[in-house]
C-alpha cells in the first residue's frame, strides 16, 4: 500500500476539522503560557488552506499540495506557528519531490524533513517545550516502524502516538524558546500549545491514512 494525493486531501480535511474543533482549547493552552491566539491563528490558516485546496488540480502531486499548504500557512497564520509549520510543510513537500505515491520510507522522509524545517526556522532542541517535542519522537517512532516493515499507515500511527506522548511530556518542562520562555518556572505544569497542535496534525495524517487504506 502507498499513499497518494487522496491521502493528502483527506489529511488536510481532517486537520481543518480537528483544528477548528480544538480552536478554543489550543488558545486556552496558549493563554496559560503565551499570548492566547494559537487556536485562532491555526484555524485561520487551515481555513485558508481549505479554500485554496478547492482550486487544487486533480492531478496535483502530494508534494505540490503540501507546498500549497506551506505557502498558505506562512501568509495567513500571523503568529510564530505560521513560519514554523509553513517551513515544516515546505521542507516536507521538497522531500517528496514529484512522486505521485508515498511508501513507508517516503513517510519517514516527509516527517524528518518537516521536523528539520521546524528546527531550521525555530532553532529549538528537544526539551525546550516547543513543537519539536512532538515532532522529534514522531520522526523517531516512524523510522522504527518503517524499519520493522510497517505500512505507510502503520508508520503514521506510530508517529501519531509518539507525537501525542511527546506533547504530553512538555507539561513538566520550563520553556526555553518563544513567549513562554519569559515565564521561567511558571510554565511548568502547562502543556505546550505548539506541541499539542503538531500532535493533532500528525494524528490527522494517521487517521486519514487509515481511512485511505481501508
Amino acid at each position: 500500500m502507498s499513499l497518494g494525493i487522496s491521502w493528502v486531501t483527506a489529511w488536510i480535511d481532517d486537520t481543518v476539522e480537528v483544528v477548528s474543533h480544538n480552536r478554543t482549547r489550543l488558545s486556552e493552552l496558549d493563554r496559560e503560557i503565551g499570548d492566547g491566539d494559537h487556536g485562532e491563528n491555526l484555524d485561520r490558516g487551515f481555513s485558508a488552506v481549505k479554500v485554496k485546496f478547492d482550486t487544487l488540480p486533480d492531478d496535483a502531486t502530494p508534494g505540490a499540495a503540501l507546498k500549497l499548504v506551506a505557502t498558505t500557512l506562512i501568509s495567513t497564520v500571523g503568529g510564530a506557528s505560521g513560519p514554523l509549520l509553513g517551513t515544516a510543510f515546505l521542507k516536507g513537500a521538497q522531500a517528496l519531490g514529484d512522486a505521485p505515491e508515498i511508501n513507508a520510507d517516503g513517510v519517514v522522509a516527509l516527517l524528518t524533513a518537516a521536523r528539520d524545517g521546524v528546527v531550521l526556522r525555530g532553532k529549538a532542541e528537544p526539551g525546550d517545550k516547543t513543537m519539536i517535542d512532538a515532532w522529534t519522537p514522531a520522526v523517531d517512532a516512524a523510522g522504527e516502524a518503517a524499519a520493522a516493515g510497517a505500512s505507510p499507515a502503520g508508520v503514521l500511527r506510530a508517529a501519531a502516538a509518539a507525537a501525542s506522548a511527546g506533547a504530553e511530556s512538555t507539561e513538566p518542562l520550563v520553556a526555553r524558546k518563544g513567549r513562554a520562555s519569559y515565564l521561567g518556572e511558571r510554565a511548568i505544569g502547562h502543556r505546550d500549545p505548539g506541541a499539542e497542535s503538531s500532535a493533532l496534525i500528525i494524528t490527522a495524517a494517521a487517521d486519514a491514512a487509515a481511512a485511505t487504506e481501508g
Binding site: I74, G78, G79, A80, S81, G82, P83, L84, G86, T87, R121, G122, G178, R179
Partner: peptide
C-alpha cells in the same frame, strides 16, 4: 520585535 516577527522575516528572506 518578538518571536514570530523574526521567524516570518527569516521565512520571507528564504
Amino acid at each position: 520585535d518578538l518571536g514570530s516577527a523574526i521567524l516570518t522575516a527569516e521565512t520571507a528572506l528564504d
